[in-house]
Amino acid sequence: MREWHEKYKDDGFVIIGVHTPEFRHERDVKNVENSLLRLNIDFAVAIDNDWKTWRSYNNRYWPAMYFIDKTGQIRYLKIGEGQYAYSESVIQALLAEQYTAN
């Protein structure tokens, strides 16, 4: 994830981490902040303590990645770890896709 952020951030690729806590201690924003420092994460992270975004996505899993194209459509959903090479090829293909603003 961090690598993708570094690699593609200048090509129009935005990573947004939505931190939806499972346990009480994960609700503490300070703890999340520390973990970002520890994991050296510098992409945007939304604090979803009230599970608003989680619910609007009807999400059920950690981790779950939604790949959204330039028009705002979800094109690929990856649940769980692994298959990073394929996911990266999805990012590259979506970045290469032509986009004309309405």
């Binding site: 994830m1 993708w4 593609y8 129009g12 690729f13 935005v14 990573i15 947004i16 981490g17 939505v18 931190h19 939806t20 806590p21 499972e22 994960e26 924003v29 703890n31 999340v32 902040e33 973990s35 970002l36 994991l39 994460i41 510098d42 992409f43 945007a44 992270v45 939304a46 604090i47 979803d48 303590n49 608003k52 975004t53 989680w54 996505y57 999400n59 899993y61 950690w62 981790p63 779950a64 990645m65 939604y66 790949f67 959204i68 194209d69 330039k70 028009t71 705002g72 990012i91 979506l94 970045l95 986009y99 603003a101």
Partner: peptide, 27 residues
């Protein structure tokens, strides 16, 4: 969401033309 780290609050509507990866995670 209103509380964000590493960034001002973002809206997908403002990110059209970008490829966005939204990842649900917990530390």
């Amino acid at each position: 969401n209103e509380v964000w780290l590493n960034s001002e609050p973002l809206k997908l509507a403002d990110l059209r033309g970008n490829v966005v990866l939204v990842e649900f995670w917990t530390y």
